[in-house]
Amino acid sequence: MSQYTQQPQFPQGPTPAAQARNGLGTAALILGIIGALSGLIPFLFWLAGILGVIALIMGLAGRGRAKRGGATNKGVALAGAILGLISLIMSVVGAVILFKAVDDAVDDINKATSGSSASKEPGDSSSKGKGTGTEKGKSKDKGGESGTDSETLAAGDSAVYDDKLTLTASAPEAYSPGEYAIGHTKGNKAYKVTVVIDNAGKEKFDAALVTAEARAGKDGVKAEQIFDEKVGEVFTGTVMPGKKATVVYAFDTPADAENLVVEISPDFTHNPSQWDLKL
């Protein structure tokens, strides 16, 4: 009699489903969040753009996988794609803001380095002395020292700047330096020139940066500024709107000099102005 060994029978259950592949959606969400946060900083617009593109692509791919049943995080993938798109938009906005800020900064630097231009306003004939007049309204080149067609101002003429700051230099007057004067050489002649600052603008003007230089004669030798108990002071303090400030300069010139070119520089934002004064 044959004996058969019967194998135990186990109930058959359902086949386990394939493991969900949620990596794309999760990565899209993480990159989208980082990209959106980077977009809040205009300087990092490039990073927001790169992460935004990657997050958008991975989010759409993860959403497609979820539709096919290969993933279970359809919502996470969609959120990653949306954040990726937001990151792209913020990247564009950040780039525009940054480039605009740089452009404005460059314009400000150009304005500061080029200086404010000035127009010539001739004074009345009584104040010009031996100087020659100029036509009103000829403007100075922004970067240069002299006016249009290389002209300079004459005695009594005014340099009127765009901000309504006005500089006026008088005709030169012979001057006798004091016994202990600095800057005067024996045998040379000395002349004093009165410079007036008239602030007709709306902003106060810091006069501490005003400087004066001079050259004399046909060879344009440097005319030293003279300092003694009567002349040689400098502009100081602030000239408020509607107010004026006056300083008397004295310069040492060769005895045979027939002209004195005086250059006044208000500050770094205003072009220097020149007066060609006949001695």
Rank of each mutant, 00 (worst) to 15 (best):
residue 276 D to A: 04
residue 129 G to Q: 02
residue 186 K to S: 14
residue 55 A to G: 00
residue 262 V to E: 12
residue 188 N to D: 14
residue 158 S to G: 01
residue 238 T to G: 11
residue 113 T to H: 11
residue 47 L to W: 04
residue 168 T to W: 07
residue 186 K to M: 00
residue 66 A to M: 05
residue 265 S to H: 09
residue 197 I to T: 05
residue 174 A to Q: 15
residue 4 Y to F: 05
residue 222 K to H: 04
residue 79 A to E: 04
residue 273 S to F: 08
residue 139 S to R: 15
residue 259 N to E: 10
residue 15 T to L: 14
residue 154 A to R: 04
residue 13 G to P: 14
residue 213 E to D: 15
residue 228 D to N: 03
residue 19 Q to L: 07
residue 219 D to G: 08
residue 33 I to Y: 03
residue 3 Q to R: 06
residue 252 D to K: 07
residue 33 I to V: 11
residue 133 G to V: 11
residue 47 L to Y: 09
residue 78 L to W: 05
residue 24 L to A: 05
residue 160 V to M: 06
residue 9 Q to Y: 01
residue 99 F to K: 14
residue 233 E to M: 06
residue 229 E to M: 07
residue 143 G to W: 12
residue 98 L to H: 14
residue 59 G to F: 07
residue 191 Y to D: 05
residue 184 H to F: 09
residue 244 K to Y: 02
residue 75 G to I: 04
residue 206 D to N: 06
residue 168 T to I: 15
residue 226 I to K: 03
residue 91 S to V: 05
residue 164 K to V: 07
residue 276 D to M: 12
residue 25 G to H: 02
residue 117 S to T: 15
residue 139 S to H: 13
residue 127 S to V: 14
residue 237 G to W: 00
residue 130 K to V: 02
residue 234 V to P: 04
residue 147 G to M: 15
residue 84 G to R: 13
residue 227 F to D: 00
residue 141 D to F: 05
residue 64 G to P: 02
residue 7 Q to K: 07
residue 255 A to E: 15
